[in-house]
Simulated assay, not measured.
Amino acid sequence: MGRTLIVTNDFPPRAGGIQAFVHGLASRRPADSVVVYAPKWRGSDSFDRRQPYEVVRHPGTLMLPTPGVARRAAELAKGCDTVVFGAAAPLGMLAPGLRSAGVGRVVMLTHGHEASWARLPVARDMLRRIGQGADVVTYLGDYTRRRLASVIPESKLVRLAPGVDTSAFHPGAGGAGVRKSLGLEDRPVVVCVSRLVPRKGQDMLIRSWPRVLREVPDAVLLLVGGGPSRNALERAAAGHVARGSVVFTGSVPWATLPAHYDAGDVFAMPCRTRLAGLDIEGLGIVYLEASASGLPVVAGSSGGAPDAVRHGETGLVVDGTSEAEIAGALTGLLSDPARARAMGERGRAWIEGEWGWDRVAARFSGILTATATGTEPAAEWR
């Protein structure tokens, strides 16, 4: 079996959906077949000791395609027949040098920001150059595929979306304990698990919340996560909604995320596209984790987010800029627990059938097997 070098800026212990995705791929490969090259973060030493494969850390918190990073990557590539870039842009620019170091095949993962790059003249040209260095470029769903296909030959594009650990994210994962600790035992809870940044839409949840409270007076909005918008969001909550109806947890340990999802009755992240289409949601693994947890999902219509929801079946897709749409979706689900429960059950079944990690890991293995044999991934993957 060949050895694979994974070069990525996105890797735990830094939290985030891309980080979880790349870590999940690495962790499901044979331990002696993987080496990861990633930036250093607080807690990375203890995290790395728990991994069964080698993790090499760049001394800073960001890797760019500089000569120093290129040299270190080339050293690590010795003995590797494949390199996987955790995100194509910008580190995919290292691909030609790694080929010169002996790597035979290059696989690049893409996410929302590459789809954004495809819209900008200068970034578009850079993304085209990056794509020229790849044998396989993965995409998350229909939205990102359409964007990438304007820059990268479709013959290189293969779908590879994140998996969900259904043994960790499931109904009854500890939500009762979270509710008790926060004093929310008997109240209807809308939960949002995400980084607190404008695109994710926590501000719109807060602005919509007075409308929700008019219909469901004892409802609570539970915002899980940290981020640069926290202070502004707390000020907005203090000025617009009833005291105690919005609860901020701040950042929580990764291992407790399933319990925080399970504390909700409805999951909501009404993401919206910002900056003239440059700041978009690539997919939204949080929607998949919420569905795995048995919750109905309210998602924004930004970018590829609708690919993570079956509208009307596992949840609802709304305009993330409309307070009325957001509030209407939330009150409708909170006021009809049977409908909400049925959506959650369908969502759980969908995740088990199509988004489980076993399926994703097999897909990734197939891509790497194609690398080793010189054949292309199966046509149905495209």
Rank of each mutant, 00 (worst) to 15 (best):
residue 9 N to A: 02
residue 15 A to I: 10
residue 16 G to F: 12
residue 18 I to W: 09
residue 19 Q to C: 13
residue 21 F to I: 00
residue 25 L to C: 08
residue 26 A to M: 11
residue 34 V to R: 01
residue 35 V to N: 03
residue 35 V to E: 09
residue 36 V to M: 05
residue 37 Y to C: 05
residue 41 W to M: 11
residue 44 S to W: 08
residue 44 S to R: 08
residue 45 D to V: 08
residue 47 F to M: 01
residue 47 F to W: 13
residue 48 D to I: 05
residue 49 R to Q: 10
residue 50 R to H: 05
residue 54 E to D: 13
residue 54 E to T: 14
residue 54 E to A: 08
residue 58 H to W: 15
residue 61 T to R: 14
residue 63 M to W: 00
residue 74 A to R: 10
residue 75 E to D: 15
residue 78 K to S: 11
residue 80 C to A: 05
residue 81 D to C: 06
residue 82 T to W: 06
residue 86 G to R: 08
residue 92 G to Y: 04
residue 106 V to P: 02
residue 107 V to L: 02
residue 109 L to K: 12
residue 118 A to T: 13
residue 120 L to W: 10
residue 124 R to W: 10
residue 130 I to Y: 01
residue 133 G to E: 00
residue 134 A to I: 02
residue 147 R to D: 14
residue 147 R to N: 12
residue 147 R to E: 14
residue 154 E to P: 09
residue 162 P to T: 07
residue 163 G to P: 12
residue 163 G to V: 06
residue 165 D to S: 01
residue 169 F to D: 03
residue 169 F to T: 02
residue 177 G to T: 06
residue 179 R to I: 01
residue 180 K to Y: 08
residue 180 K to F: 04
residue 187 R to I: 07
residue 187 R to F: 10
residue 194 S to E: 12
residue 198 P to E: 04
residue 210 P to F: 02
residue 210 P to K: 00
residue 215 E to N: 10
residue 220 V to H: 14
residue 221 L to M: 07
residue 228 P to F: 08
residue 229 S to H: 11
residue 234 E to R: 13
residue 242 A to P: 15
residue 243 R to W: 06
residue 247 V to S: 09
residue 248 F to V: 00
residue 249 T to F: 05
residue 256 T to A: 15
residue 259 A to T: 01
residue 262 D to T: 02
residue 266 V to Q: 03
residue 270 P to Q: 03
residue 270 P to M: 02
residue 277 G to M: 06
residue 283 L to V: 08
residue 284 G to H: 07
residue 302 S to T: 02
residue 306 P to F: 01
residue 308 A to Q: 07
residue 312 G to E: 13
residue 316 L to Y: 08
residue 317 V to D: 14
residue 327 A to W: 03
residue 329 A to H: 03
residue 331 T to C: 04
residue 336 D to M: 02
residue 338 A to N: 02
residue 338 A to F: 03
residue 349 A to M: 00
residue 350 W to C: 07
residue 350 W to H: 13
residue 358 D to C: 00
residue 360 V to W: 14
residue 362 A to F: 03
residue 365 S to P: 11
residue 368 L to C: 13
residue 374 G to T: 08
residue 378 A to L: 12
residue 380 E to F: 10
residue 382 R to Q: 06
